[in-house]
Amino acid sequence: MSVATIKFYLRERLLPPGTLTARNQADYDETHLARIKMIRTLTGIGMMSLSAVREVLAAIDDSCVPQRELYQVLNGALCAQLTASTGAASVVRAQAHVDEFIEGVGWRVGDDAPGRTALAQVVAALRDLGCTSEVEEVFLPYARAAEHLAVRELDAMPPGAPELVTRTVLFEVAFAVMRRMAYEHLMALRDADSPVTDE
């Protein structure tokens, strides 16, 4: 970790100042090291913007924020990075279907949860691309898998705000990567099973 990067994190208010030992020198301890690792994880593997990381870190630092609210801040920061590729009218139409879907699976998700809007953006984009399937038909298997994984992750989660944030981000990336590898694996199997024809 370069001195310039540490100074940048300090200027961006991502890292608390160290203990001054001279006019232009400071000591940093294990808490600073842990914070630097978290910042690098969120901006690197997690691909979060610095403003999103700052928002999440502020929630972590606020000892009055309960874990559920911290997760909502993290979810909002992650969803805020999505940009709609479809018109607002398409997203509004999709929103009603997403709301019905969430109610149908029985999830207790706030009406203003950013995930609702993000999923509506996905549904609207799929429809713009010609996918006319019902939301439930397409996403019910995803919802079941997501809930199953979330139960396992929460049961194995050590207590503490930083762990909740970093594990959530890393598991999300891991799931996306493994899903892509599963696609590659299944395509290879299907190619191997395809009959070869002579030209």
Rank of each mutant, 00 (worst) to 15 (best):
A94E: 04
Q81T: 06
A156Q: 11
I60D: 11
K37Q: 09
L57Y: 12
L164S: 04
I39A: 00
A113F: 05
C64D: 13
A146E: 02
L42T: 03
A113H: 07
S194R: 12
R23C: 03
R40A: 09
L20H: 02
C79V: 04
A192H: 06
E147Y: 14
T21M: 10
K7T: 11
P158S: 00
V98G: 07
A182I: 09
G115K: 08
E137M: 07
T86V: 14
S63C: 10
D193P: 06
E100R: 14
I39Y: 03
Y142E: 08
Q95D: 12
E100V: 03
E30T: 07
E103Y: 00
A192M: 08
I45M: 11
L154M: 14
A52N: 03
V177H: 02
L164Q: 06
Q72H: 01
F171G: 07
G130C: 07
P158R: 04
D112N: 13
L50P: 06
H185T: 15
G160M: 04
L10P: 01
V3P: 05
L149Y: 08
R40H: 12
P66V: 01
Y28G: 02
L15P: 09
A146V: 10
V109S: 03
S133C: 06
E12F: 15
L74V: 01
E147D: 09
D29H: 09
S85Y: 06
E147S: 12
Q121A: 07
V169I: 05
V151M: 13
H97N: 09
E30V: 05
L15Q: 02
V105K: 08
A94F: 00
Q95A: 14
P17R: 09
L170F: 02
Y9E: 00
E134M: 04
V169T: 05
R35D: 00
Q72T: 04
E184R: 07
A125W: 00
D155C: 06
D111C: 05
S194L: 10
T31M: 04
I36R: 07
A120P: 00
S49V: 02
V109H: 01
P159L: 13
P141L: 13
V173K: 11
H32W: 03
V151D: 15
L189C: 11
G115W: 05
M1W: 06
V169Y: 12
T86N: 10
W107N: 09
Y142C: 13
S2P: 09
E134L: 04
M38W: 01
A150P: 01
L126A: 13
M181V: 08
L50R: 03
A52E: 09
V196R: 12
P114D: 01
T83W: 10
A124R: 05
D99A: 14
R127Y: 06
D111A: 09
S85P: 12
T117A: 14
H97Q: 14
S133M: 10
L140M: 11
G160E: 03
G44V: 03
C79L: 07
G106Q: 10
G18V: 12
F8L: 12
E69Y: 01
G160S: 09
V53H: 11
R116K: 07
R108I: 11
L50M: 12
T132Y: 11
P159W: 01
H32L: 02
V105H: 06
